[in-house]
Amino acid sequence: MEESVTALPLGFADLSGRGVVITGGGSGIGAALTEGFVRAGAKVAFIDINEEASLSLVERLSADAIHRPLFLHADLRDMDAAKAAIGEAASHLGGLGVLVNNAALDDRHEFLEVTEEIWDANQTINLKQMFFCAQAAAPYLIADGHGAIVNFSSISFMLNMGGMPSYTTAKAGILGLTKSLAGRLGPDGVRVNAILPGMIVTERQKRLWLTDEGIAAMVDRQCLKRSLTAEDVLGPCLFLASRASAGMTAQWITVDGGVL
């Protein structure tokens, strides 16, 4: 039986009381991250465009949370709105110790039909907003003294997947961004790392793209013979956000069940 978020051993005591902002934290992988940090005792603000799902998550987690999570409604394709949300999170939480750049949109798109508008929109939500969220959060992370950024990439760009070329380009770019920011912010005491999930089975994925046959085919390629869920990336994210990884920066952790 697969473990739930609440059953995971959250042994990262230094995260208790830390100001954490998570982008795209209202559903899917993001909701699992929000819940995990809340249950680790962090002060969490999450940014999302889906108001209904996000408010429902806040109510569910607030029943036994040490710190009630804060939902900030913003469209991260609007850089001014994204930066304002980061500022509001920092103000509400009394500073920031961790930024989790999770928000993404993996819509499929046919190479021969991609327009400049489609390309630019895809790069905006999957890469551009990560840069500007990090830029907005950086002064608070530097002031914290030992801040951390965790960027979510993907193994998709390593699998020669032809059905979403702008998305996979952005996910490759996130690794370049991670290493560049690590070099820039390291002297200020801020660590920057990334997580590369494999096929994480979420409700959205099952509704839009994944079939039972497709899931089975990927599991067959994995060393671990089970479907990966959002909870599988929670532990690595908590680790990279916490002082348990204090000597790590400019690195990435692959969570793909052993596909690569």
Results as ranks from 00 to 15, higher is better:
residue 67 H to I: 01
residue 68 R to M: 08
residue 69 P to A: 10
residue 69 P to H: 05
residue 69 P to C: 12
residue 70 L to V: 15
residue 70 L to C: 11
residue 70 L to P: 07
residue 71 F to E: 05
residue 72 L to S: 06
residue 74 A to P: 08
residue 76 L to R: 00
residue 77 R to E: 05
residue 77 R to C: 11
residue 77 R to L: 03
residue 78 D to K: 06
residue 78 D to G: 08
residue 79 M to Y: 01
residue 80 D to C: 04
residue 80 D to W: 00
residue 81 A to F: 04
residue 81 A to I: 02
residue 83 K to V: 10
residue 86 I to F: 01
residue 86 I to V: 11
residue 88 E to I: 03
residue 88 E to Y: 03
residue 91 S to C: 06
residue 91 S to F: 09
residue 92 H to S: 13
residue 96 L to Y: 06
residue 98 V to D: 05
residue 99 L to S: 07
residue 100 V to Q: 02
residue 103 A to T: 04
residue 104 A to P: 03
residue 105 L to P: 00
residue 105 L to D: 13
residue 107 D to I: 11
residue 107 D to Q: 10
residue 109 H to E: 15
residue 110 E to T: 15
residue 112 L to H: 13
residue 114 V to K: 00
residue 114 V to N: 02
residue 114 V to F: 01
residue 115 T to D: 07
residue 116 E to A: 11
residue 119 W to T: 01
residue 120 D to Y: 02
residue 120 D to P: 03
residue 121 A to Y: 05
residue 123 Q to S: 11
residue 124 T to F: 01
residue 125 I to T: 00
residue 127 L to Y: 05
residue 127 L to A: 05
residue 128 K to N: 14
residue 128 K to D: 12
residue 129 Q to W: 08
residue 130 M to V: 02
residue 131 F to A: 08
residue 132 F to A: 05
residue 133 C to P: 00
residue 134 A to H: 01
residue 135 Q to V: 14
residue 137 A to I: 04
residue 137 A to R: 05
residue 142 I to Y: 10
residue 142 I to G: 11
residue 145 G to Q: 10
residue 145 G to D: 10
residue 146 H to I: 06
residue 146 H to C: 13
residue 146 H to G: 14
residue 148 A to I: 00
residue 150 V to L: 06
residue 151 N to Q: 13
residue 154 S to N: 06
residue 154 S to D: 08
residue 156 S to G: 12
residue 156 S to Y: 11
residue 158 M to K: 14
residue 159 L to G: 03
residue 159 L to P: 01
residue 160 N to V: 12
residue 160 N to S: 15
residue 163 G to I: 12
residue 164 M to L: 14
residue 164 M to T: 11
residue 167 Y to C: 12
residue 168 T to L: 10
residue 169 T to S: 14
residue 170 A to Y: 05
residue 172 A to Q: 08
residue 172 A to Y: 02
residue 176 G to M: 06
residue 176 G to Q: 07
residue 177 L to I: 03
